[in-house]
């Protein structure tokens, strides 16, 4: 699993089999109660989990709490990892389940700063349009169901294969494709009014 569009890792380095073994070794140390290994694993996953949970939860103030809950499960259950999926898939599946539990508890509206989206900083035209498009997408994504947000995030940002997404979300691969298809259609509907002036 990679950061698909930026810093294309495949172009920088080698094969996934040895890479997976490296993470497995780290997780083995975590399973043995090695705190330093856990903190290294935590820091490695922190940027990606923060991003993923931020998108799925849509409530920035809850990201840290849910992320820590998920990593606490990793700490406690590391010995039960059975190698039937990639380690990242296992960790993201835990984070996704914790996020869904958290969402059920929420009774507050989704946080989205409309003013921030509207008040764009001056700059070159291309940069301005890009920021405007990003803000509009943020507005639209905040209005989608959590499972649609998750499949979009895991596909476009984290570069997950649809088979991995099925494992993370605990559903058949056909469901992943269908969710993505409907999510795209829903996005197009939401954006149709706002996209007229955007590239």
């Amino acid at each position: 699993m990679v950061h698909g569009r930026k810093a294309s890792p495949a172009a920088v380095a080698g094969g996934p089999e040895t890479a997976e073994e490296g993470e497995l070794a780290l997780l083995q140390r975590v399973a043995a109660g090695d705190r330093a290994a856990f903190e290294l694993l935590y820091r490695c996953y922190f940027p990606r989990l923060t991003r993923f949970l931020g998108r799925v939860l849509q409530r920035p103030h809850t990201v840290e709490e849910v992320l820590n809950d998920a990593m606490l499960v990793v700490w406690r259950k590391a010995a039960s990892f059975n190698g039937q999926s990639r380690i990242s898939t296992w960790i993201f599946a835990i984070a996704y389940r914790r996020a869904l539990k958290a969402i059920k508890r929420f009774d507050d509206p989704i946080e989205f700063d409309e003013e921030q989206a509207e008040s764009l900083h001056p700059g070159p035209d291309a940069a301005l349009m890009h920021r405007q498009l990003s803000a509009t997408l943020g507005w639209a994504i905040a209005r989608m169901p959590a499972d649609h947000r998750a499949v979009i995030e895991l596909t476009y940002f984290h570069g997950c294969r649809y088979q991995e997404i099925a494992q993370i979300m605990g559903c058949p691969v056909g469901t992943v494709k269908t969710r993505m298809f409907h999510a795209r259609r829903r996005l197009q509907l939401l954006l149709s009014d706002r996209m007229e002036d955007l590239p």
Partner: peptide, 26 residues
């Protein structure tokens, strides 16, 4: 085009502060 715009990230959480809160629970 959607993907290029989508990849921008706006969540700012400090990993060290978050980890400090988790340590007692570990």
């Amino acid at each position: 085009r959607f993907r290029e715009a989508y990849a921008d990230s706006d969540i700012a959480v400090d990993p060290e502060q978050a980890l400090a809160k988790l340590r007692p629970r570990l």
